[in-house]
Structures are given as C-alpha cells and as structure tokens.
Amino acid sequence: MKALIIKYKSVLKFILTFLVVYISLSICYKFYLDYSKDSKYYPDYITNLVARQSVDLIDFMGYNAKIIPHPDEASMKLIINDKYLARIIEGCNSISVIILFVSFIMAFSGKPKTTFMYLLAGSVLIYTANLLRIVILSIGLYHYPWRKEILHTVIFPGIIYGMVFLLWVVWVNRFSNMIKKNE
C-alpha cells in the first residue's frame, strides 16, 4: 500500500487539493447565498449584477431590455422589446464555473504570483464570457425562440466549459509545477 501511495503521490495530491478547494469554496458560496436572501439585491448581489450588466450590453446592441424580479422564484425576468424571454437565475452568474476553474488551477498550482494572476485573469475571462453568453443567448432567443433547447443546453454551455477546459490546458502546459516536476 505504501508503495502505491508513493507511486501515485502527485495524483493523490491533485485529487485531495482539488476536493479541499472545491468543497471549501462551495461552502463559502453557499453561505454567501444564504446570507444574500435578506439583501436588497434580488436574488443575490452577483446574480443581480450579471442581470443588470447583461441588460446594459443588450441595450448597447440596440435592443430595449429590462429586468424585473421574478415574483415566484429567485430569479430576474429578462425582457427584450417588451417580450419576456428568459430568467437569470443564480446558476447564470458564472460563480460555480469559476469555483471549478479555481479548484483545478489550485490543484495544479505553480508559482504563487503566477497562480494568483492566472486565477484572476481566468476568472475575469470566464465572467466576461458568461456575460456575452447571456447577451447572445438572449438575442438568439428573441429572434429564434424555436432554437431554445439547442442554444441553452448545448451550444452555450459547450462554449463556456470549452473555454474553461482550454484555460486548464494552457495552465497545465505552461505554468503548472506538476509538469515541471515530471520532466
């Protein structure tokens, strides 16, 4: 057993680090969501911010967009040109994807400054891509409502998770200490 642990030490370290970071950040996020229920920003600050920024970008694209709190669930109703198109829920704010990204990068950590800068840049990139995803998806739903399923469940999740995967590949191949140790 000891020989297996020694042989797979780097794999075990990766798995343990990933799980500790992922579970810790997920618990912190859960506390944030629970605390946010009494906030003036409905349904929570980050989701509200994403909804407002999405509306600003949609308006910039030449549409008349607005958001209103959903009366029956914790979400914001997105309306373009007086047509209710979608709801922006907590899952649309990109935090869960960022937590997954951060956990992986921490599990393959590199130099502290490089790791921090990559985490910051990657998180901003994911957040921005998510905003653009919501905007393009909303405009797509406005013009092509019959394409809702493929747009929402296949194309746009594929784009955001594909980008995260590419960020991981770049990290592992360019900055991670794990690869350097094994060379």
Rank of each mutant, 00 (worst) to 15 (best):
K13A: 04
W171D: 04
I23C: 03
L119F: 01
I99E: 01
D38A: 07
Y161L: 10
N48A: 07
K37V: 07
R87V: 05
L57M: 07
V169E: 13
M61N: 04
K37A: 01
M61T: 13
K181F: 11
D44F: 11
M61L: 05
N48Y: 14
I150G: 01
Y142R: 00
P112Y: 00
H152M: 12
M1W: 10
Y8C: 11
S138H: 04
N130Y: 07
K30D: 00
F14S: 00
N64Q: 12
R174F: 14
V102E: 09
K180V: 14
F104Y: 14
K83R: 01
W168M: 13
S94L: 09
K7H: 01
E90L: 14
I155P: 02
S39L: 06
M106Q: 12
G158V: 12
G91V: 09
A86P: 00
D82T: 00
N93M: 05
I126P: 11
L167C: 13
Y142F: 02
V55M: 02
I159E: 06
V20T: 13
V172A: 08
F18V: 00
V124K: 02
R87L: 09
G162H: 03
L141R: 02
Y142V: 01
L49Y: 15
A107Y: 10
T47V: 04
V172E: 08
L4I: 08
W171Y: 06
Y142P: 02
Y22F: 15
A3C: 06
Y29N: 11
V11F: 14
D72P: 01
V11Q: 13
D59M: 05
P157K: 14
L4R: 11
T17L: 03
D59K: 15
C28Y: 13
Y161S: 11
D59T: 09
A51E: 00
I95Y: 14
I134G: 12
M163G: 10
I67H: 07
A74D: 04
I155M: 06
I105E: 03
I105G: 09
I5W: 15
V135N: 11
V172G: 01
S36M: 07
F175T: 05
G110R: 11
K148R: 14
Y142C: 03
V50Y: 08
L19W: 06
I58C: 06
Y32S: 09
S26L: 10
F116E: 04
F116P: 09
V21N: 09
L131Q: 03
I99K: 08
W171E: 05
K113R: 08
L125P: 15
Y29K: 14
R87D: 10
L151E: 08
Y161K: 08
L141A: 10
E149R: 10
Y22G: 01
R52A: 05
